[in-house]
Each structure stands twice: as structure tokens, then as C-alpha cells.
Design a binder for these strands. Structure first.
Lengths: 220, 220
DNA sequence: CCAAAAGTGTTGTTTATACACCCATGT
DNA sequence: ACATGGGTGTATAAACAACACTTTTGG
């Protein structure tokens, strides 16, 4: 039992984990096993331990609840409406993270009944204010496409320029010009050709790789 | 006395309040009257009340400690290193705020010995991780000058284009071209000429006013 | 009449956009 | 042979950057 002279809020982290699968932007949700909002879908997350850094807590919860580790993560916003949790005052520091197409080892675990990817365009009713959190994460992600190389976080270690363009088109919801797109990303200087080729059903495409895979930087 | 089964961190807000005075960018600091860091300078802020919205808490603390009210405010970042406060785990949601040159009614109050403006370039040693918070706020402010009309938050209700340009030059630390600057801000559409003129020591300047004074919006 | 800030357009450069055809492979 | 995505350059438009002189007031 822990005692305080003044009331303390609980503090949690929540993670909006995005990936791209089957040409759709998807968000990882877990099904709650306990009240409140039992059986509702919610963001992975949970209470911050008392000696744990916030980002470490977010990564730990993500790992425990979904088995996903080692992803790129950024603090999004802190949500603290007094009534956002019916149990007690809970302030949550929301993070968002991106996971490459090939790094999906999702399993349900701990206090989650189930963990599943949902299309961003077709989310179920969500617990708490998690819908608002996802909306804000999506706006941030879409904005960052314009001025950073964040999209590389969705790519496996080898990828084609066509695949990278597809990521943009899926998130932005509109087609882009192929030649202009290629000029743009190659001017970043943050990817390089491996010399290899991918054999698909058609003409083989050159494979590229990120020079600094974990690093998101501003580009123009 | 408040009891919890699991330990809860304390949660505070801190506010980086900027103004421009005597052609310098300044930050408001309070002198702590109590341990830890007694007599050190620190950001205004304090613990969030249990039923209080985060932004409301930040505004309340700002008012209590400095007498400043009704300013534009934006959430900056949440700082939560486990050892950032020697007393107990304290997670702080940092905000930054801008106050116009003419709206300074600063007084020390409540648990602050004193409240004073410090030049941003010449800050005293600060309590906690407040230096890091100020650095982040300054980076955000400088970045937002490029793609928003945030600088209008520094302006009184009537101002000249020369004064507005000065704000940019002070924060960016470099001179700007007058004609290009004027083209740029007038293309925003968010200021309008009042028809009045300001009589200074020299040729009178036209006075402008913000169309939506409290509103910060993206511009290109 | 001098000092000081206000006010005002044009030109060149860079950046962004629009646009169409041939290529290499698998079936 | 054909369907499919891969690969490439140029011309136009828009945005940005550089730049100098005249005006109006107070002292």
C-alpha cells in the first residue's frame, strides 16, 4: 500500500503501432480482458512503473501485450482529461510506432485477450479516448511524410522504390507521379542501392536499403 | 491521506513563457522558496490537481505564480526521467506559451520568492531538468516561425511590420530582407491594416492587427 | 539638412510539377 | 504475344532570394 498526502493520478503509456499490410494502413489493437471496457478493443499500453522511463514503459507494454520489439517510437501527446478513465484519474503519454511489413510477430499476451491488426479506415469502437489518440497519431504520421524520411520505418531491410512509393500512396490516399517520387527520395541521400534485384512476376526491380535504418531525419 | 495498491507518480505541469522585451527573447523564471533546489530558478508550474485538466492546471499555475493570464499555450512534451526530481517520481507535462510585449503584469506570488524575466541567451543555473525543457521549447518556437503565424502571439493588438520583423530576427538571430518579409507576412492573410499610423521618431508606420488574435495557424 | 525607419518591384535562381515512352520479365 | 510493374528526362510554372532607392517624419 502506498500513501500520499495529496492524491496522485495514475500514469500510463499507450502506443499506436502502425504497419502496412495487404496495401492497407493498419493499427494494432488488443482486446481488453478486464473492466472497464472489457472485450472492447484498445491500444496496447499500461501503467508506468515507478522507476521506469516513459519510453521504456511504452516499449515494455508493447512487448508484453503484442510480442513486438525493437521498433521506432516517438512521443505523440499526453492525454489527461479528468474523466477519460472511469476508474480513477489516468493520464496517458501516447507514443506512436511504425513496424516494417516483414517484422510482424504479433501474439496476444498478458492481460489482452487477443491482439489484431485493424485497417485504419475501419476501426471498431474503441475503449477510453483511444480513437482520438489514433486520429492524432495518423495526422502526425501523414504530416511527417512530407518533411522526413519516416516512411523508411515501414520498409524491410531491402525494398524497391515502387514499394516505398506505395507506402506514401496508401497513407496519403492518392497516387503520386513515379518519376518525381523517385527523384525526391533519391535526393534524400538516406537510401542506397544494393545492386541486387528482386524477381517478381515482372521486370526485376532494384533493391534499396536504408543507410541508417533506425534513424528518422528531416528532409525537404 | 490517499492510498493506492500500486505506487503512483506525481504529475506536474511546467510552462516555458516567452516574451520579447528590449529586443531580446526572454523566459519567465521563478525563484524557488522551498527545497529541493531552494533559491534556484525554475520554470513556473506545479502539481496537477486530481480533477483538473492538464492545460487548465498549467494556466492556473502560471496565474498563481506570476499573475500572467489569458495567453496562448501549447503542449510541448512530457518529461519523465525517473530521477528528474529527488523527492519522488514526478512526471511533468511541459507547455510553452507566448505573451505579447505589452501584456506583462508579472508579480511573484504563492510559493515563489520572486518571478523575473531572463534573457534566453543568458539563463541562470536551473532546477531539475528545466534547462532541457527550455531548449526544447526554443527549438519548437524557432521551427514554428517557418510554417505558422505563431509570431503574432508576441504582438500587441496594434503593431507595425517592422516590429513583427524584429521578432523574427531576434528569435532567429539573423537579419531578414525587408521586402521579402513583408511580401511573406501579407500573403498569410492573417493580418490587416487598421489605417492608423504610429508616430515614432521618424516616418510614421502603418499599424496592423491580427484578424484572429488567439489563433495560431499553419502558413507557407 | 541630417538621421532613421518606412515603404516599394523586378530579376534571376531554385524548386516543384506535369507529362509518355521503352524495358525486362513471367505466364 | 501480352500483361505488368520498372525505369528514365525535359519543359513549364511557381516559389524563393537577392537587391537599391525614395519617402516621411523628428530633431
Amino acid at each position: 500500500m502506498y500513501n500520499y498526502i495529496y492524491p496522485h493520478p495514475a500514469v500510463s503509456t499507450d502506443i499506436v503501432l502502425f504497419t502496412i499490410e495487404e496495401e492497407k494502413l493498419k493499427v494494432l489493437l488488443i482486446q481488453r480482458a478486464a473492466d472497464p471496457f472489457r472485450d472492447h478493443w484498445a491500444l496496447p499500453g499500461g501503467f508506468v512503473e515507478i522507476d521506469e522511463d516513459l519510453e521504456a514503459g511504452a516499449l515494455r507494454e508493447l512487448g508484453e501485450e503484442t510480442g513486438v520489439t525493437g521498433v521506432w517510437l516517438e512521443q505523440l501527446y499526453t492525454f489527461g482529461r479528468p474523466d477519460r478513465d472511469p476508474r480513477e484519474r489516468v493520464i496517458t503519454i501516447a507514443y506512436y510506432a511504425l513496424v516494417p511489413i516483414d517484422r510482424l510477430h504479433v501474439r496476444a499476451a498478458s492481460d489482452a485477450r487477443d491482439a489484431r491488426w485493424f485497417e485504419w479506415k475501419n476501426l471498431p469502437p474503441l475503449a477510453f479516448d483511444h480513437r482520438e489518440i489514433i486520429d492524432r497519431a495518423h495526422r502526425r504520421l501523414a504530416a511527417k511524410l512530407d518533411y522526413s524520411n519516416i516512411a523508411l520505418q515501414f520498409m524491410p531491410s531491402r525494398f524497391t522504390l515502387g514499394e516505398l512509393q506505395k507506402v506514401y500512396e496508401i497513407i496519403r490516399g492518392e497516387a503520386l507521379d513515379k518519376r518525381n517520387f523517385r527523384k525526391r527520395v533519391r535526393s534524400w541521400g538516406s537510401i542506397e542501392s544494393t545492386g541486387e534485384r528482386r524477381n517478381g512476376k515482372h521486370r526485376p526491380a532494384r533493391l534499396f536499403t536504408a543507410r541508417e535504418p533506425g534513424r528518422v531525419e528531416f528532409v525537404k
